[in-house]
């Protein structure tokens, strides 16, 4: 039991990070209807920005803010030059998939060009200490991840529910034509959404990098976990991303421990989850039912 609880808590800590990446994916899906396969690479890139600033001697928190700002710019730029011109994702899925895959390659290659192929080490944001609760040891880093996720969710809630900008972003996500007709500059808001998503991804990267080592393939597995989280939660639900993140984190931690066939592939439960949800409940737990277009 203690063993189980231990593993579960580790999973929930990981889940918080998947949820962070998921939040970014949801923001992009809601505003542009697009599954951004390059989200993980963008997060990796901005995590390298954090690392660079930190290794130049900046305090970690400042480096993270810098990385988020850098990520924001990358996200906004990517939307302007690559995503917006290609058109509606649901009318031209192939073109959009190819563009995000092009981004995947491009951002990954750019990171290799700038930072090389060696893994860098990054210190855990909340140190290497741990605390014992009911006889179960929990790393501060995991607790920190949950807290940071909580803060991010709160900020998102305030933004979307209590600011004019957030209201406008919701209007754009719901009906961009209507939004444009009340005077909302839709392209600029979409750009903002992409920037925001990339900035959020930075934080996810900062939490993962100390575990995996900061390399250019940092986020390739994590991205699938993030997608599993939002598939379960519903592609357009921020709450869903959080709940989905925790569930995926827990499953991916617990199942490989007890089911030997998953031993070397914690990704497998996440994959089965994606498949099962898309087959039997495509809108996920909290998402809106998709209207199929004929």
């Amino acid at each position: 039991m203690k063993d189980f609880l231990q593993i579960l808590l580790v999973g929930i800590g990981d889940g918080a990070v998947y949820a962070m990446l998921g939040l970014g994916l949801v923001v992009i899906y809601r505003s542009t209807g697009l599954l951004n396969f390059a989200q993980g690479e963008m997060a990796m890139f901005s995590t390298f920005i954090v690392w660079t600033m930190w290794s130049l001697g900046l305090p970690m928190w400042l480096a993270i803010l810098g990385g988020m700002a850098g990520g924001f710019c990358v996200g906004a730029l990517v939307h302007q030059v690559a995503v917006r011109p290609v058109g509606d994702p649901h009318e031209k899925p192939l073109a959009v998939v190819i563009v995000t895959i092009g981004l995947f390659l491009g951002v990954n290659g750019a990171a290799q060009l700038i930072w090389g192929t060696l893994d860098r080490s990054m210190p855990p944001l909340f140190g290497r200490g741990q605390v014992t609760v009911f006889g179960v040891a929990v790393a501060w880093q995991k607790i920190g991840a949950v807290i940071v996720l909580g803060v991010m969710v709160l900020l998102f809630y305030l933004l979307f529910q209590h600011t004019k900008l957030g209201l406008a972003m919701r209007a754009v996500a719901s009906n961009s034509e209507s939004a444009s007709l009340v005077g909302i500059p839709v392209p600029r808001l979409l750009m903002l959404g992409w920037g925001l998503a990339a900035a959020v991804g930075t934080v996810a990267g900062v939490f993962i990098a100390p575990n995996l080592g900061l390399g250019t393939n940092l986020m390739q597995l994590t991205l699938i976990f993030g997608f599993a989280a939002i598939t379960l939660g519903g592609f357009d639900s921020l709450v869903g991303a959080v709940v989905g993140g925790f569930v995926v984190g827990a499953l991916s931690s617990v199942m490989p421990r007890y089911i030997t066939i998953f031993e070397k592939m914690p990704l497998a439960p996440a994959f089965i989850l994606i498949l099962a949800v898309l087959l039997f409940r495509p809108e996920g737990l909290f998402g809106k039912k998709q209207v199929t277009r004929v």
Partner: peptide, 28 residues
């Protein structure tokens, strides 16, 4: 000009099919 730029100048358009933002509340 884009529609949003015209709204700024004082032209508002109520499109066919009403065009409310259905997932926002009335007040929003």
């Amino acid at each position: 000009r884009r529609p949003d730029q015209l709204v700024k100048r004082g032209m508002a358009h109520v499109p066919q099919g009403r065009g409310t933002v259905t997932s926002l509340t009335v007040e929003e």
